[in-house]
């Protein structure tokens, strides 16, 4: 008898929790590539202040997030670190073609947490380090850009045994900040505001541009709040915040050409 009561109680509590969860208004859910998370949080804060809507942010590598969208994750907007994955989602009917636009152009940096001279090509060539961190080139565009840079410098084969691969730029930064890797390739936006460490911005000519596209996902096609956020992301204030965070934004001509 007692066990029966316990089971019924447990079921009742579970039911209550589920229904109360359902009842509360659904927040706007952003899936954000790891390099953009801090900036996205600032944008979301600004947006929430303006509109009184609530926004939640999930982050990971662009590849992980795109896979999650394919598997039915309840995201409304996808801020990728590349153009390819939003495009693929559009062609599989999971995202809305007309909503796709480049919200930021990322800049790759070589960063190390110590003071002294900023790390550069020569430092890599001298090889006075055990581990160079970067993110998985298969899933994170910044990882692919890092590999392209190493190849452009003719250092890839030489440094290959010392590369440690993180799952996203956030994890790459974590590996360096914890001191386990001495230096690594990360996004300018991650380190531009850090007080510690030194960085060198990698010349854009060495890697394919890190155009980061945003797209409205199909499940949010009728969602007015989501459309409002996309409009906000297009606006001058958002563009200004994005530039201040360490990104470039497409100029007017490119914008008009789309």
């Amino acid at each position: 008898m007692r066990i029966h009561r316990l089971i019924i109680l447990a079921l009742a509590i579970t039911g209550a929790l589920i229904s109360s969860n359902r009842a509360s208004a659904d927040p706007l859910r952003l899936a954000v590539a790891a390099n953009f998370i801090q900036t996205a949080q600032q944008l979301a804060d600004e947006f929430m202040q303006r509109t009184d809507l609530s926004v939640t942010i999930s982050s990971g590598s662009s590849g992980q997030l795109a896979t999650q969208v394919r598997e039915g994750a309840p995201f409304d907007i996808f801020l990728s670190a590349d153009t390819q994955r939003p495009e693929e989602l559009v062609s599989s009917g999971l995202a809305i073609a007309s909503s796709r636009f480049t919200y930021a152009i990322g800049q790759l940096v070589l960063w190390r947490p110590t003071t002294g001279i900023p790390p550069d090509e020569q430092m890599l060539r001298n090889g006075q380090f055990a581990h160079l961190a970067l993110c998985n080139p298969a899933t994170a565009p910044y990882g692919a850009a890092a590999i392209e840079t190493l190849k452009a410098w003719n250092l890839y084969d030489q440094l290959r045994p010392r590369l440690v691969v993180a799952q996203s730029v956030s994890q790459a930064l974590e590996l360096i900040q914890s001191g386990n890797a001495e230096l690594g390739f990360v996004a300018l936006a991650q380190v531009s505001r850090l007080k510690e460490g030194k960085y060198t911005v990698i010349p854009e000519s060495l890697y394919s541009p890190l155009r980061q596209d945003a797209v409205l996902l199909s499940r949010a096609g009728e969602n007015i709040d989501a459309r409002q956020f996309m409009t906000f992301l297009h606006g001058p204030q958002a563009r200004d915040m994005i530039r201040r965070a360490g990104y470039l934004t497409p100029n007017g001509e490119q914008e008009a050409a789309r």
């Binding site: 055990a130 581990h131 440690v164 974590e174 590996l175 914890s178 001191g179 386990n180 890797a181 001495e182």
Partner: peptide, 25 residues
């Protein structure tokens, strides 16, 4: 573990025995 393995943690001291600077990786 990531913190403990780094050069400033106990893992770093152990790793120095064979000339490495971290136990991670």
């Amino acid at each position: 573990l990531l913190l403990a393995f780094g050069p400033t943690g106990p893992g770093g001291w152990i790793a120095r025995l064979w000339g490495a600077r971290t136990l991670a990786f």
